[in-house]
């Protein structure tokens, strides 16, 4: 399994886009920070810092695209045959890809977190102290960490769906679209969804509601809308993650290539 993950990482690192995307990530974060600094009368730096200066949003796009292409590219280039007719179990091939994207997502989140901290210290040192209380009896640092954690969990809910779709359609276009639309749809439909949930309470278990986890981690009162405790949401996210991954596994195991 370690060999397989190493091979996936080897491929990932030899793609030109991997380096370019990281550079773009840094440019976006530094650019946002400088913009906010120069127009400090217009923007409040606090929320930007807590969102990683736009880095979290960019990470999400990059990781959705990476998850779709790590599966779809093998079908596109015909390399799936070479991957499969080796001594490894078929399931191992897919799991190695999940693990690779997991490591890749950790890399992006840790990088975003660290760079955001550094930018805060370099440009907005006087704005607030990380240890000071921000809201709900939580320090700035804790809020930022929880925000990243919630974003990470919901990202993986989306990624598990992207893995499944890339497996079914064998093309990254469809999978990426659904992943990104899924992300924005949560914001768009949440108003309607909360209304419907008031009528039929069981609807609170739908996956779009689970996407509100980050909001609720930062703002515990959100549970009057989501109708779920934070713990229930974490578990809900994980359950959907497992369901989508298992479906993808099932499809992959039976696919004729």
């Amino acid at each position: 399994m370690i060999t397989l993950v190493k091979q996936e990482i080897y491929k990932l690192l030899h793609k030109k886009s991997t380096l370019i995307l990281t550079v773009i990530q840094l440019i976006i974060m530094i650019g946002t920070a400088i913009l906010i600094k120069s127009k400090s009368n217009l923007f409040d730096p606090t929320s930007a810092i807590l969102d990683g200066f736009g880095g979290l949003m960019w990470s999400l796009f990059v990781l959705i695209a990476a998850a779709a292409s790590i599966i779809a590219m093998e079908f596109q280039h015909g390399t799936i045959k070479e991957l499969l007719y080796r001594r490894y179990y078929r399931g191992q091939i897919l799991i190695s890809k999940w693990l690779t994207i997991f490591l890749y997502s950790l890399y992006y989140y840790v990088m975003t977190f660290v760079v955001a901290l550094l930018l805060k210290i370099a440009l907005f040192n006087s704005a607030f102290k990380f240890t000071a209380i921000y809201a709900n009896n939580m320090s700035y640092l804790k809020i930022m960490f929880l925000g990243f954690l919630g974003s990470f969990l919901t990202l993986w809910l989306l990624l598990s769906l992207v893995f499944l779709l890339a497996n079914i359609f064998k093309s990254n276009g469809a999978a990426i679209t659904v992943g990104i639309v899924g992300y924005f749809a949560t914001n768009l439909i949440s108003g309607v969804m909360f209304l419907l949930m008031n009528k039929w309470e069981w609807l609170k278990w739908n996956p779009f509601n689970m996407m509100n986890l980050s909001t609720q981690l930062l703002e515990p009162t959100a549970k009057t809308m989501t109708l779920l405790s934070t713990q229930q949401m974490v578990i809900g996210n994980l359950v959907y993650l497992v369901i989508f991954l298992a479906l993808g596994y099932f499809v992959f195991q039976r696919r004729n290539v």
């Binding site: 030899h14 793609k15 280039h77 015909g78 390399t79 045959k81 070479e82 007719y85 080796r86």
Partner: peptide, 17 residues
């Protein structure tokens, strides 16, 4: 299949390698 090598249909290659 550790003992087997193969080339089926057309060679699957990664364009970026």
């Amino acid at each position: 299949l550790d003992e087997v090598g193969a080339l089926i249909e057309y060679p699957g290659l990664y364009p970026f390698l």
